[in-house]
């Protein structure tokens, strides 16, 4: 369907995805420290870094369905999407630990244990760490393909935890976190349904 875009995709170097992808992060940190984020710059910084983490993680998970369903091949950008998601999750964590909680480690630890939304957010980040560490050519060469795939399957639960974390910090059910959760659930459902379909399609 979107095959016509493929020559364009081929010509875009991966580094442009990193540069463009990090631009909102650079802007939001600059804006936060220069009083350009409104009345509550910390909340805005936490929100923006968190939402960009979720967007890039979703983008990484969407690469395969986009290829299968729309014939749009973005595979060469998938690692960049995933790593950008991790970088924003890291910025989000730094904003909270440093600017929100003032590096008071015992209080931070207590919050992680006591507050489910923080426990879930931390779990999502912890799951992303081994994925990020193995997202380089050396790791891909060193680690067996099956093992590498098994490690990176964890992108699904990590993204789901991120979307749940988003819902748990808001009051009521505003549309934005619901939409993100809906997209993640749809991607998970597609992933779960695909192997079933392939098995059904195989001749007995």
């Amino acid at each position: 369907m979107l095959q016509s875009l493929s020559p364009l995709v081929r010509r875009v170097p991966v580094w442009t995805v990193y540069v463009l992808g990090l631009a909102p992060g650079v802007w939001v940190w600059y804006a936060a420290f220069n009083n350009k984020l409104g009345a509550d710059p910390l909340a805005a910084l936490e929100h923006e870094t968190g939402i960009w983490a979720l967007r890039f993680l979703i983008a990484a998970l969407a690469v395969t369905p986009l290829l299968r369903l729309l014939k749009l091949n973005l595979i060469k950008f998938r690692r960049a999407f995933g790593l950008l998601g991790f970088y924003y999750a890291l910025m989000h964590l730094v904003a909270w630990v440093w600017l929100d909680r003032g590096l008071l480690w015992s209080a931070i630890w207590a919050e992680i244990i006591k507050r489910p939304y923080i426990t879930i957010g931390m779990a999502a980040f912890a799951v992303l760490v081994p994925l990020a560490v193995t997202s380089n050519n050396l790791a891909v060469r060193r680690i067996q393909a099956a093992t590498w795939k098994r490690i990176h399957w964890w992108a699904y639960p990590a993204t789901l935890l991120g979307a749940v974390h988003f819902i748990l910090v808001v009051k009521r059910w505003p549309p934005e976190p619901m939409i993100y959760l809906g997209i993640v659930v749809a991607l998970l459902a597609w992933r779960a349904w695909k192997p079933v379909k392939m098995r059904l399609a195989k001749p007995a």
Binding site: F33, N35, L42, L45, R115, Y117
Partner: peptide
């Protein structure tokens, strides 16, 4: 039930306002 009420963040003091 979901968050602590022990501290608060004053609004309007910029990023360094703390808790």
């Amino acid at each position: 039930p979901r968050w602590s009420q022990a501290t608060e963040r004053p609004i309007g003091g910029g990023l360094g306002a703390g808790r």
